[in-house]
């Protein structure tokens, strides 16, 4: 399964990474090299094998459904590149 230039552009957009036209060819070659490398997994007989979901067998831990933190808006916002009061600022998303 080799990727073409259009797939590179589509994947980049899905990943929200801007690519300039000169990068497409080299990215295509690199992605195809990696995909060719992982292609050998096709040799493995995985019939009846469960996909791994947890490397250490353990039951999902539950905690009490109660508020145990909060009122820390200032520290949550302290690293924001743009903010106003207790809000993150972003470019306009709705007209």
């Amino acid at each position: 399964m080799a990727v073409d230039s259009d797939t590179v552009r589509r994947v980049a957009h899905l990943a929200r990474i801007a690519v300039v036209e000169d990068e497409v060819e080299s990215l295509k070659a690199e992605l195809n090299a990696i995909l060719a490398f992982v292609e050998q997994l096709g040799e493995v007989d995985v019939r009846g094998v469960e996909p791994m979901t947890s490397v250490t067998p353990m039951a999902m831990k539950m905690r009490q459904d109660e508020v145990n933190d909060g009122a820390i808006a200032d520290s949550i916002l302290q690293n924001a590149p743009a903010r106003e009061d207790h809000f993150f600022l972003v470019p306009k998303v709705v007209e």
Partner: peptide, 13 residues
């Protein structure tokens, strides 16, 4: 890809 890799991971373990 992903599902097959996770199955291979089960076999590695």
């Amino acid at each position: 890809y992903y599902l097959r890799a996770q199955k291979v991971r089960t076999l590695i373990k």
